[in-house]
Write a protein that binds this DNA or RNA. Structure first.
Length: 502
RNA sequence: GGGUGCAUAGCUCAGUGGUAGAGCAUCUGCCUUUUAAGCAGAGGGUCCCUGGUUCGAGCCCAGGUGCACUCACCA
């Protein structure tokens, strides 16, 4: 990309380079080193009475210019928003005004001046001096905006091409600054999660991203190669097996927030790398984890979004605790009349057919039950709901249910029919764990590319003894999508993965 | 992976077989409280790519690429 400048130059860029050279000829460095900023757009507008007539030094990108001969107005955009500046030849001097005329939308300037209101009532800064801080060589997409008396903003010719917005997020952020709000919320949400876990005795840790064996979830991995060791490595698909090793080691409560990588399709809810939160706590079970998690989300809603009552895609959702709790088996009985635990494979298939579910063949009983759940129950779980106790085949790392044969102690949280977390009482019986791994290994051998490998080191770890433990995983991007009401994972990732363009 | 749709100037978009268009942005001139500033004029195009049909293709056909939506799978 570095050397594109020469081949990429169109007329607009040529013009800007010429202007830059003219500025240089006038003794102006188009890329100086610093500027002492002492105020910001929003603050000036909010404290007009106090600041009127006072001197301020602001800096920002020129977003609009209206030239009227020997005086001009411009809108500057700084970190908080826009403010108008008024630049008059007789105030900044003929030379500086000549330089000002060579500036373009997109250039970054510093303005020293006093605060005033124009005839039409717009809070502005009347420049007493102006400095170029950065010359912009590439034209930015122009979006004109009008703000009426009520503060309503109308944007004309908004930069709207989603592809370009994702590929050139830096331009998107300049031209559509309101999207910053989503990313700021994202940061606050993650900060509040850390705060909640830290104050509840959890220790944040970092475990390997490059792993000799992958595990902890059902997914295909990315592979890479370590040159010095001459070995294949996988990018992690989950943190689970390492975090549980830490529970074995005597950390009673740990969590990790970091990226996992899954070699799967890309769509509105999938990016190849995504941010995962996993937490594990000794001596607790999944019932405890349910309460702990719902309180965490409730707290996020209150502290970051200001309310437990959110409107998401036109639906009112209440995150106030306690959330609904339903058992998967009971709910399926209510919905279909079928007792899925005693039902035969044929009964399940018959029931699935009623709901137009296509099967690939070779599904286990557990998988059939899961399919039936997705077809009949999942979409109806609008308000936050925990679904408990899943078939054992689907959960090779979860502990068998203390009372219910064939099930494990597992729950998933659902909102608007979407899964937001997955948790269980962790399997800590090493003999049982070995059997589950072996059954997964058979599935892998039979072509299930998402099945687990046998992780002997992990087995060794829990053979030393892992205390009873509750664990939970949350895809944070999806949680943030939900809480900030964004329709695509790409809207909560600053730099979503895109196919390269030739 | 399947289906549907989109791709034309820096941006937003018209243009359904016959000279490539508009608004904004850019450039020139005028304009010292304007605000989608205004007035007068000018420049700017690999019509996504490759092939085909046709006297002639931005437009029709086939293939490809990218993106969006959607179904399937998953976090």
């Amino acid at each position: 990309m570095e050397n594109n400048t020469q081949t990429d130059v169109n007329e607009l860029m040529k013009r800007r380079i010429e202007e830059m050279n003219e500025l240089r000829a006038m003794g102006i460095n188009p890329y100086p080193y610093e500027y002492e900023v002492d105020n910001y757009s929003v603050n000036i507008k909010q404290n007009f009475e106090e600041l009127e007539g006072k001197d301020v030094k602001i800096a920002g990108r020129i977003m609009a210019i209206r030239r009227m001969g020997k005086a001009s107005f411009a809108h500057l955009m700084d970190k908080d928003g826009r403010i108008q500046v008024y630049v008059r030849r007789d105030d900044i001097g003929a030379d500086k005004y000549k330089a000002f005329k060579l500036l373009d939308i997109g250039d970054i300037i510093g303005i020293d001046g006093y605060v005033f209101k124009t005839k039409t009532g717009e809070t502005s800064v009347h420049a007493t001096s102006m400095e170029l801080l950065t010359k912009s060589l590439r034209p930015i997409p122009i979006a004109k905006e009008v703000v009426d008396e009520n503060g309503n903003k109308t944007v004309y010719d908004q930069f709207a091409d989603k592809e370009l917005r994702y590929r050139q997020r830096y331009v998107d952020l300049i031209v559509n600054p309101e999207i910053k709000d989503v990313f700021v919320k994202r940061t606050y949400i993650i900060r509040k999660i850390r705060e909640y876990l830290d104050t509840n005795g959890f220790l944040e840790v970092q475990t390997p991203i490059l792993q000799p064996l992958y595990g902890g979830a059902a997914a295909r991995p990315f592979t890479t190669h370590h040159n010095a060791l001459d070995m294949k490595l996988y990018l992690r698909i989950a943190d689970e097996l390492y975090l549980k090793r830490l529970i074995v080691g005597g950390f009673d409560a740990v969590y990790e927030i970091g990226n996992d990588f899954r070699n799967e399709g890309i769509d509105r809810t999938h990016n190849p790398e995504f941010t995962m939160l996993e937490m594990y706590i000794a001596y607790k079970d999944y019932e405890w984890m349910m309460s702990f998690f719902e309180k965490m989300v409730e707290k996020l809603c209150v502290e970051v979004l200001g309310s437990t009552e959110l409107e998401i895609e036109g639906t009112k959702v209440s995150f106030k605790t306690p959330w609904n709790r339903i058992s998967m088996v009971d709910e399926l009985k209510k919905e279909t009349g079928l007792d899925v635990l005693s039902a035969s494979k044929e009964d399940l298939k018959k029931e699935l057919k009623k709901h137009n579910v296509d099967l690939h063949g070779g599904e286990s009983v557990g998988k059939l039950i899961d399919e039936l759940f997705e077809a009949t129950v999942q979409d109806k779980l609008i308000q936050p709901t925990f679904v408990t106790d899943y078939p054992v085949e689907l959960s090779p790392l979860a502990k068998k249910h203390r009372d219910k044969e064939g099930l494990v102690e597992r729950f998933e949280g659902f909102v608007l029919g979407r899964e937001i977390c997955n948790a269980f009482s962790e399997l800590n019986d090493p003999v049982d764990q070995r059997e589950r791994f072996e059954s997964q290994a058979r599935a892998l051998a039979e072509g299930d590319e998402e099945a687990h490998q046998v992780d002997e080191d992990f087995l060794k770890a829990i053979e030393y003894g892992m205390p009873p433990t509750a664990g939970l995983g949350v895809g944070l991007d999806r949680l943030i999508m939900l809480l900030t009401n964004q329709p695509s994972i790409r809207d909560v990732l600053l730099f979503p993965h895109m196919r390269p363009r030739s």
